[in-house]
Amino acid sequence: MTSTDTGHTYRLNVNGSDRVVDGSWLGESLLYVLRERLGLPGTKNACEQGECGACSVLIDGVLVCSCLELAAAAVGTDIVTVEGIGNAGPTDGNGLTDVQRAFVTEGAVQCGFCTPGLIVAVHDLLDDNPEPSRSETHEALAGHLCRCTGYGRIEAAVEHVIEIRRD
């Protein structure tokens, strides 16, 4: 690669929209492309090595770290970011999903940096397993680092959604 090896163009399907990625270097991660080329900064960049979960998105319905996905090799997949997580289901008057609302009401958001990744991951968890045990929740969310909450409020938000969806 040279520093002039940019200017590549390809298309990605993000949150149901066909998006053109322009002027890119093909080694860019999906995380970088979402934030810097497609104007979707909800997905957060922290570790760039899959340790922190802040960049979690869904690719073809599978929870992944977008920092570990080569954007140019995600052509043809369906990508859902936190900005599009409410597209598939009901939202309240503020456009929040039940998971997002529960994070607010349970105080699971402090600095907010880990929140987008956790929102995507909690949707993924509860859509697949509506009644996870505490252990299952811990295991499912173990790939997310939160330095503010101590995780208790996040766990409370998950429990809250489980109850809401049960009713």
Partner: peptide
Amino acid sequence: GGTDAMVEINYEHRRPASVVSLRR
């Protein structure tokens, strides 16, 4: 899966001239 290779690319430990993705 990219869980090793992408870390090397992100941290500029590897600057591949070409990538063959096995996704398909």
